[in-house]
């Protein structure tokens, strides 16, 4: 079992700090197919956690469960104080205001300008006045280096730019935790770099982030800790440097060997 159940301490932080995300014994099935089979881990505020593993190991599903996009069959998920998954114990609207999510396929709204993509939820959900929403939109666009694209439509942007807008759109709602699902997998290598740069800056700024990624170099360099998923479980996890220096399981060793 090794370190699979271990609570992840953020580097340089006391271990007894209250985690902002705590998952215990999470189980998820699609019909007869059990995709998550007792996933447990915890994330401290301000940490960047990289979730890695082979295709089909349940990484995306786990992330979607965290955000309440999938119902769960067992275990508990506590994220920013919301008990996600247990009916009646969490409020979707409140969860949405605390947790942001960015997808592999950007999912910008194609009929709206970049700025409107960002202000939409600010005005509709957070009920901000138009002028405030605009100011926030321009600020987050500045942050991802796209202030000059505010009036462009998504299809006029490169994939990397679209993904940065998607990150800005999520960021604008000032979430406490951000979830990223393979946000660079659809991008060419040059475009990947600019998106990863944005995420690195975010992490530096203290954002709590959980990212599913195949960018092993990035995970190794930037993530505070790493979760290796295998067969619907947390097979191995721990602080990044330690984990890569002394892999405990043969599966993780093989995985690292196959991707590096």
């Amino acid at each position: 079992m090794s370190r699979a159940e271990a609570v992840l301490p953020a580097e340089g932080q006391p271990i007894d700090q209250v985690p902002i995300v705590r998952v215990t014994g999470l189980e998820k099935s699609f019909g007869p197919l059990k995709v998550l089979d007792g996933v447990s881990f915890a994330v401290q505020p301000g940490q960047m956690v990289a979730v890695v593993g082979r295709s089909g190991s349940g990484k995306s599903t786990m992330l979607r469960c965290l955000n309440g996009l999938e119902d769960i069959q067992g275990g508990t998920i506590e994220i920013c104080g919301h008990q996600v998954g247990r009916p009646g114990s969490w409020n979707k609207a409140q969860l949405r205001s605390d947790v942001g999510m960015v997808f592999q396929s950007y999912n910008l709204f194609p009929h709206l300008t970049v700025e409107r993509n960002i202000t939409l939820a600010l005005t509709l959900v957070q009920k901000k006045p138009k002028a405030d929403a605009r100011r926030i939109a321009l600020a987050v666009l500045e942050q991802v280096g796209l202030a000059e694209k505010a009036q462009a439509y998504p299809e006029q942007l490169s994939g990397g730019q679209q993904q940065r807008v998607a990150i800005a759109r999520s960021l604008a709602l000032s979430p406490q935790v951000m979830l990223f699902d393979e946000v660079t997998s659809a991008l060419d290598p040059e475009l990947t770099v600019e998106v990863l740069k944005v995420m690195e800056d975010l992490s530096r700024g203290g954002m709590t982030m959980i990212l599913v990624t195949h960018e092993m170099g990035f995970a190794r360099r930037v993530a505070h800790s790493v979760i290796f998923m295998h067969r619907g479980r947390v097979w191995e996890s721990g602080p990044t440097a330690e984990l890569f220096a002394r892999p405990q399981t043969i599966e993780f060793q093989q995985f690292v060997g196959s991707v590096l």
Binding site: N67, L69, A93, R96, S97, G100, M101, F103, S105, N107, L108, F109, P110, H111, L120, A121, L124, V125, Q126, R169, S170, L173
Partner: peptide, 24 residues
């Protein structure tokens, strides 16, 4: 995915229809 993205931004079903789905 347009439903999912707007859901993740906190739009309710009516808002999703009016602002995201029906225009497209």
């Amino acid at each position: 995915t347009q439903w999912e993205a707007s859901d993740c931004l906190g739009l309710d079903r009516l808002q999703q229809y009016v602002w995201v789905i029906l225009p497209q």
